[in-house]
């Protein structure tokens, strides 16, 4: 049975990328602990709107942990702390204690400028994918799907890499603002599959170059990214990206 908790919430307000930003605070009373974190924010916003104030802005969409839209830094952890890793929308209030202070911040990274409050611009991720995160294949009639045999193990591993939802928690957690986990997951997915091999070298080079150009930091293998990834991507992907990249460069 659900029980109610009360707590103080500190949430980041920032009017555009140039604004300095500050925290607003509010006491939240008797929130059922089976409420999701975003539903709690809905309640907060409902209260703010009732008082004639502008609501707290944050990105969210599917609310089932797959679209990657939600992006809140809760109590010092991207998406908030859960055991298995989950997105903010899958964080439930039962994870918090009565009387606690909950601090909500946006992803802070030069690669993700703030649009408003906790809504950030992650367009850089799209640009990285555009640089090479695909196989060049025309719509039409490729060969029969079963003509390419892929060992189950490889397919499963590629699937794990492909699970990345592009939420940006890895960049948010990284003290270097590095996007390596994101980039490596896509490179790994396609590098593991025969369909992706023909362009593997080109892809690794192009995506890394774009990532660097967009001002993301350098990976120092702190593993903060994999610790917070809601889809449990691992730095084994980063090793693979390094391998692919170095191989490609040495072959040039």
């Amino acid at each position: 049975m659900a029980k109610n908790i009360s707590f103080k919430i500190r949430y980041w307000k920032q009017n555009g990328p140039k604004d300095k930003g500050h925290f607003d605070e509010r006491e939240m009373k008797d929130i059922p602990d089976d409420t999701s974190f975003l539903e709690m924010l809905d309640i907060l916003n409902e209260q703010l709107v009732e008082e004639g104030k502008e609501p707290f802005v944050f990105d969210h969409d599917c609310r089932e942990g797959i679209c990657g839209m939600c992006s809140l830094y809760v109590n010092g952890t991207p998406h908030g702390k859960t055991e298995r890793g989950a997105t903010t929308c899958q964080l439930y209030m039962r994870r918090f204690k009565d009387g606690e202070t909950i601090t909500v911040e946006p992803w802070r990274s030069a690669g993700f400028p703030v649009i408003k409050d906790c809504m950030v611009d992650r367009g850089a991720f799209d640009k990285i994918i555009q640089a090479g995160g695909y196989t060049t294949v025309r719509t039409g009639a490729p060969q029969d799907a079963n003509a390419i045999l892929i060992p189950k193990q490889d397919a499963d591993e590629a699937m794990d890499c492909a699970s990345c939802i592009g939420c940006g928690a890895c960049v948010a957690a990284c003290k270097n603002g590095s996007a390596m986990l994101f980039v490596s997951s896509k490179v790994s997915q396609l590098a593991l599959l025969p369909q992706g091999r023909p362009e593997a070298a080109k892809r690794a080079k192009a995506m890394v170059a774009k990532m660097d150009e967009l001002g993301f930091g350098n990976c120092t293998n702190t593993r903060a990214c994999e610790a917070v990834c809601p889809k449990n991507e691992t730095i084994a992907n980063i090793a693979r990206l390094n391998r692919e990249f170095i191989k490609a460069k040495l072959a040039d």
Binding site: P142, A145, P151, A155, D156, M159, L193, Q195, G196
Partner: peptide, 15 residues
């Protein structure tokens, strides 16, 4: 299915 496999969609596979 053919199109998606060519794109690198990692569908589940048999051994």
């Amino acid at each position: 299915i053919d199109q998606c496999v060519a794109q690198g969609v990692p569908f589940a596979r048999e051994y």
